[in-house]
Design a protein around this nucleic acid. Structure first.
Lengths: 201, 201, 201, 201
DNA sequence: GAGTAATCGAGACGGTACGTCCCGTCTTGTT
DNA sequence: AACAAGACGGGACGTACCGTCTCGATTACTC
C-alpha cells in the first residue's frame, strides 16, 4: 500500500504553514542582539527569548545562528545590490566602494558582517553560503561593470577582472577584520589611486 | 636604595616559578588540537587533558584560548620575522609574499590564523593582540623595505607606504577568510603585477 | 473569574512538566552511591552520571545533595510513619524504638542518616528540613501515644512529653553519631528500664 | 653499608624542630574561621592564609582539618576536665551537665563541636579520635562519680553506669545536633528529674 | 661560628567537583 | 501542523580547593 503521493516522512516542515510573524521576530531579534553584544555573545536561547519564540521554531527553519544572520542580511541588505554606470569608471567604483565602506563603518552592519565571517572560519557551510549569497552577487556586478570598461579600453586587456575586484575590495575587508585602522572614505580614494595607477614611478 | 623596578604587580602569579614543561605542553596541545579539528572545536578542557595539565594552570597564564594560540604563533613563527633585501624590490616582495601565501595554504597555519582572526571579531583584546604582536611587526618590516625603495626612487613619492602594504597583503587575507579561492603563488604574481603597475592603460 | 490560586510563582520550573523517570533515577542513584561510599564521597556529578541525567536537571529541582537524600528518605521511609497502640505503653515504645534501632543499625539507612545530620551542621536549611520532615512527624506520633498513656494515668502528670521523647530517643542518636557503641536491641531495653523507672533507688 | 643508626628514611618530620609559633597560629586560625563561618566553609587554604603559614606546614603535622580542630579543642578545652564531688550526686551532676550545656549554647564551641561530629560521620579516624580524646575522658570521670554514688546506695545496683551517662548526656547532644530546640539550663533540670526518678507514676 | 639539614612561607602544579550557561532534542498543550 | 514554552541529556565553562611538589629564606642543631 505505497502512497507515493504523500511524501513527507516526518522531517520536512511545510513552508506554507510557516509563521511569517515568527520569522520576522527571529530576524529582528538576531540583528538586535548582534548589535548589542558581539557575535560570540549571540545565543539561540537569547534569540528565542527576545523574539518570544520557541527554540524549536528556530531549529525548524535554520541550521545555525549564522544562517539566521545570513538571511537577515540578505533580506535587509538587498538595497546595496546595484552598481552605478555613469560612464566614468573611477567615479562609479568610488561610488560603490564608498557605499561598502560606509556599511563597514556602521557599527551594526560591521557587527554582523564580522560575526558571519568569523562563523565561516569554523563552518564550511556558512562559508559557502556567505560567498554565494553575499559576496558573489556583488562581485559579479562589479566584474560586469569592469568588463564594460575593459571593452572600452579603459583597462589593460591582460588583467583578470576578478583579481582586480579582489585588489580593490580586499583592503576594506582587511581593515574590517584585522582592526588595524577604521574603514574610511579616504581609504577608498587611496585604494583607487594605487590600484588604478600603480605604485611604481 | 629603592629600585624603580618594583617587581610584584599585585596578587599575580609569579613567572619565575612557572613550569616551562607545562607551558610547552599547553602550546603543543593547542596547536595539535587546532590542526585536528576546527578552531571552534577547540576547548580549554581538551587542551588541558591533551597537555596533561590542570585547567587552572592554563587560566593562570592565559585569559583565553585565543591567547594561547597567539603565544604559540608568536613563539613558533618567530622565524618568519625577517624581510629580504636583495636590491630588487619586486623580487623581494614576491619572496616575502610567497612565504605568507605558503603559510596561508598550509592547513595547520591556516587553521589557527583563521581561528585567531575569528576570535578577534568578538574580543577587542584579542584583536589588539593579534595586530600588535603578529601583524604590526611584519607590516613594519615591509614598510621599512618599501621606504628604502621609495628613497631609491623606485616608488612614487606621494604614496603612503602603509596603504601600499595593505593593498599587497589584503588580497591574501581576503581569500583566506572569505574562502572564495585558494591562496596561491599565482595570486602573489597577479597582485604584484596589478599593484605596482596599475590596472589602467 | 479570577482564581486565587495563581499558579506560576516566578521563573520557577514547572512541576507539571517534571520527568518522574529522572526524579526516581536521581533518588535511586543518590541512595546507591550513599550506600557504596560515605556521604562525603557523594557528588552531584556522580549522581548525575549514575542516574544518566544532566546536572541541570538535579539543580533544577533540588538545592543540594542533602535535599535529595531528604526527599529519598521521606518517600522511601513513609512506611515507618505509624506508632503502635496495643494498650501496653512500654511494649509499644519498645516496638517502635526497636524499629528505629534496627534502622540505625542498617548500613544504608545509617549512611544517609549520618550524612544528612552531618550536612545539617553546616546548613540551617537542611537542619530545618530534617527536623520538619523527618524528626517532627515521628516525634508527634510518639507524643500522641504518650499523651494517651498520661491521660490513662500511666505516666506522671508533671512531665513534658516532648522532653520524655527526647530522653528515650536521644541515646539512639548519641550512639549513631558519636560512634561510641553500636545501636542494639539491648540498648532499647536499657533506656526504657532507666527512663521509665528512674536511676535512683 | 647499613646505617641503622640513621633511621629517618624521609617521611617523618622531626617534632623537635617544629615551630610552635606556626602551630598556635594554625590552631587560632582554625578556631576563628570555624566561628566565622560554618564548618563546611573551613578550608585548608583558608587556614593557611589566615595563619600566614604554608599549606605544607599544615599537612606535615595534621592529616585533616578535623584533626586541627580536635587538637585545638583538646588544648583549649582542658579546663572542663574535672568533675565535682560535693557528696550530693544530683547537685554534682547538675553542675557538670550545666557546664556542658553552657558550652553547647556558646556559638563558638557549638560550631566546632558540630563540625567535628559532622566530620566524624565520614571519617572513622576522626570518629575514633573524637571519642577517645574528647568523649571518653569525660564519660569516665562521670562514671567514676556515679560509681561512688552507687556504692553509697544512692543509685540502683542493677544499672550499667555507662548507660546512665548516655541517658543523661544524650539529650544535650540531641538538641545540639538535631537543632530541634536550644540547649538550656532547664533542659538539664528536666533530664535529671526524669532520669533519676523515672517517668512512670 | 660555620656548615648543613630540616622546617618554614609561598604558591605552582595535576586534579576533581562545583554550579552555570548553552547546546540541540524532546514533550506538552494552544492556536 | 506549526506554534510558545521549557524540561531533558549533555558538554564546556571558569572557580575553588584538594593534596603534592618545588622553591629560596630562615632557623637551629652538629662539628
Amino acid at each position: 500500500m505505497a502512497t507515493p503521493s504523500t511524501p513527507a516522512p516526518r522531517s520536512a516542515p511545510n513552508p506554507d504553514r510557516r509563521s511569517e510573524r515568527a520569522r520576522q521576530a527571529i530576524l529582528d531579534a538576531a540583528l538586535e542582539l548582534c548589535g548589542e553584544q558581539l557575535y560570540a555573545g549571540l545565543t539561540m536561547e537569547g534569540i528565542a527569548k527576545r523574539a518570544g519564540v520557541g527554540k524549536q521554531t528556530i531549529y525548524r527553519w535554520w541550521p545555525s545562528k549564522a544562517a539566521i544572520l545570513l538571511e537577515a542580511i540578505e533580506e535587509r541588505g538587498r538595497s546595496t545590490l546595484d552598481f552605478p554606470d555613469t560612464g566614468n569608471l573611477e567615479a562609479d567604483l568610488r561610488t560603490q566602494m564608498t557605499q561598502v565602506a560606509q556599511a563597514f563603518a556602521s557599527p551594526l552592519f560591521a557587527a554582523y558582517s564580522k560575526g558571519l565571517i568569523a562563523a565561516a572560519q569554523s563552518d564550511p557551510d556558512i562559508a559557502k553560503a556567505v560567498v554565494d549569497s553575499i559576496i558573489k552577487p556583488r562581485v559579479d556586478l562589479c566584474i560586469e561593470r569592469l568588463t564594460k570598461a575593459q571593452s572600452a579600453g579603459e583597462l589593460r586587456e591582460d588583467i583578470d577582472l576578478a583579481d582586480l575586484v579582489e585588489l580593490l575590495y580586499a583592503p576594506l575587508y582587511y581593515r574590517l577584520l584585522l582592526h588595524t585602522r577604521p574603514v574610511t572614505q579616504s581609504q577608498v580614494d587611496t585604494i583607487l589611486n594605487l590600484a588604478l595607477t600603480g605604485a611604481t614611478k
